[in-house]
Amino acid sequence: MLSSYAITIGTIIVIQAIAVCGLNVIVGFAGQISLGHAAFFGIGAYTSAILTVKAGLSFWTALPIVIAIGGLIGLMLGLPSIRVREDFLAITTIGINFIVEALFRYIPFFGGALGIGGIPRIMLFDIRMKGIPFFFLCLFFLCIVILICWWFTRSWASLAFYAIREEETAASAMGISPVRFKLLAFVMGTSMAALSGSLYAHYMQFINAGDFSFPVSVGFLSMLVLGGIGTIWGPVIGTVILGVLPELFRPLVDYRILFYTLLLLVMIRFQPGGLLGEKSLVKNILSRTFKRC
């Protein structure tokens, strides 16, 4: 019998994995750095909370709107961001994160410092989704997101993304519009973050600006970098490991942000491909071990 504690951890991990998959589309597929992904996670959560609590919509009616708004804001913020240089993009996305968090915190419409409470649980087949059923609902959404990412890597778009990342000028002269593809990645990635945020809101039933602060973005990026940027399963593996570790070593909880940052630096220095990426030590060791068996 699974304890409710384990289910809680599992559910949060699955929800976060959805956001990290979205980040992977932006960072991994399109090669655009984003240090403000939690902003879009928050936009999804707040949009769904407001639509359900204040406008009385159901989660399901709100969902397409949430995803569309997440994508639309991603598009609006992506437009100017994409034209700036990489280091500026990092700063710009951090800025976006702080601004969005501040808006949530200081504008009364978003509940101010108190946040928004009383967010209804998701109803499915007349069942209020919580515990194990909610976990599976989230897992279902994660599967869809992974499928989309997988389809993406098989499609034309991934070829275009590869071409743009490697030789942007040559790709552009081949008829591949870099701006268009980068925006596509931004829209896909931020929509996924919004979906994840929505699930988070209806799971916690209470949200607060602090849930979507900059350290959360750093966390997402650490998970992605640990698992493997640009891979299909990397975001999931990274999220699982970083979700479970602090539960096993309690002291980590207090130093979570420090741990994330250190991990990020170490990974980028020594294993930029992540656990599942190219030249991965772990993958090498595993494949060697299996060959020997």
Partner: peptide, 19 residues
Amino acid sequence: SRVFPRLTVYENLLTGFYR
């Protein structure tokens, strides 16, 4: 030349056929 180094020869040719 400016080919895409980490795409295969075939994939490189595919990029030329974009759209």
